[in-house]
């Protein structure tokens, strides 16, 4: 004759309760991921094929001796403006709207603004950049530059983890979307360089303590702590139930 030590209903109840607890516990951890990506067509190749003839391989422009002279485009920081130029063809420049597909136009514009647009990226003081970043940027992008939520328009400040230094510099100057622009009157070239240096640093900070949990802060730490508690609870089950055969 078998009588369960625990009443029959206990097991169902316990299983259901476990599920109730576990599902909300584990699911939010999946959130803390960084997103980002670059346009797939090769912007550099398109630029060298289509644009370099006039603008030069570095976008420095070709001197006006030749009839097809193109201006220096190294100060174009705004991908929107670059795209507009490629599409409409201002002045002597032809329109590429029938030549290049939309992703290609985007790719070449990003190439121009990220790789050719020259804000003299040298020098800069890392620590000063950190201070400036906390003053001017961290209120939206958070101190680890992993993005922050803004209740204005539903557009969040993006994570800067995957942005190249020239793009960061350009974005500071041009102010994409709802982001304010920081003209040289607010941030000098030197200060801008410091900020870019800090952003580049904080994209891959040393993390001496181990896994950074995506720099999500106390929320992610809380979930990790609960996993620790869960592991310990499993240990207690093992302690009391294990080894009894």
């Amino acid at each position: 004759m078998f009588i369960s030590k625990r009443p029959a209903g206990w097991k169902t109840f316990r299983l259901a309760l476990c599920a109730l607890v576990l599902v909300p516990l584990v699911s939010p951890l999946a959130f803390c991921r960084q997103t980002g990506g670059s346009p797939s067509p090769n912007g550099a190749a398109i630029f060298n094929r289509r644009c370099a003839k006039c603008h030069g391989e570095q976008g420095q422009g070709i001197s006006a001796i030749v009839s097809i002279a193109g201006p220096n485009i190294q100060a174009v920081h705004n991908p929107g403006r670059a795209m507009m130029a490629v599409e409409t063809g201002p002045g002597h420049m032809p329109s590429f709207v029938n030549v290049l597909s939309v992703p290609e136009i985007r790719a070449v514009s990003y190439y121009v603004t990220q790789h050719l647009a020259v804000i003299p990226l040298q020098g800069g003081n890392l620590a000063e950049g950190g201070t400036l970043f906390r003053t001017h940027c961290a209120a939206c992008h958070r101190t680890a530059a992993r993005g922050g939520a803004l209740a204005f328009t539903g557009i969040n400040a993006p994570s800067l983890a995957n942005y190249s230094a020239p793009l960061v510099a350009g974005a500071i100057r041009w102010g994409p979307g709802p982001m304010p622009a920081f003209p040289p009157s607010v941030l000098s070239d030197e200060q801008l360089n410091s900020i870019v240096k800090y952003v580049t640093f904080v994209q891959h900070p040393p993390d001496p303590g181990g896994n950074s949990l995506g720099y999500c802060g106390p929320v992610a730490e809380g979930f990790a702590g609960w996993i620790g508690v869960l592991v310990l609870v499993i240990f207690t089950i093992w302690i009391e139930k294990g080894g009894r055969g």
Binding site: R134, A138, A139, R142, A149, C216, P218, V219, E221, F223
Partner: peptide
């Protein structure tokens, strides 16, 4: 200065 995502511990 201030940062968004300023949470207390869990």
């Amino acid at each position: 200065a201030i940062l968004p995502g300023a949470q207390p511990d869990w």
